[in-house]
Design a protein around this nucleic acid. Structure first.
Lengths: 101, 101
DNA sequence: CGACCTATGTATAAATA
DNA sequence: TTATTTATACATAGGTC
């Protein structure tokens, strides 16, 4: 975009990299917020700049809740389906599965 | 964007909401990946759709490492600065602080 | 540095297949 | 319901101050 097209590779010039980081970070945060609202999605975004500064965004349920939900989703529980799995998708589509904690 | 402008509020029509979710999720993931590469940023994105399906993206250091780094950044350690803080920014700008574990 | 300015490249809302 | 098309709205690279 902008006046010229750029390749998606690390920007070597420090000043330019920081300016681009600032602009794109703002754009990404905005898009994340929009997705959460428009589609009723639960999402978390964590960004550390190359200088170590932290920026984050979480939808209404809150960062901690989302991170816990993520850990839960990644675990395999005895007798509990993993919401990431294909079988869970199938059960949801079939109307058999409505919710996974 | 697109043929018409839409308000940023929950999309009531289920089909429309799912189509929009699919498109915007893809766009958000792409932007996240670009920011990580262009600006050498460390980032994690976690998205749960309204039906509970999980989608995620993490830059090269990996999801677990980023989540741990996030928890570290949010904690106050005895004698260790919080990288989120203004004082840390000041020390970085002054060239006094280079790295925070 | 952050704020503003535009020419361009992208993302995407609706419609359609 | 998923893929493609296309008209528009939006994001943003490069400049300026």
């Amino acid at each position: 975009m902008g006046r010229g097209k750029i390749a998606i590779e690390r920007i070597d010039n420090t000043t330019n990299r920081q300016v681009t980081f600032s602009k794109r970070r703002g754009g990404l945060m905005k898009k994340a917020r929009e997705l959460a609202i428009l589609c009723d999605a639960d999402l978390a975004l964590i960004v550390f700049s190359s200088t170590g500064r932290l920026y984050d965004f979480a939808s209404s349920s809150g960062m901690e809740a989302i991170l816990e939900r993520y850990q839960e989703a990644k675990e395999e529980h005895c007798g509990v389906l993993n919401p990431t799995s294909e079988i869970s998708d199938y059960l949801r589509l079939s109307g058999i599965l409505y919710f996974i904690s």
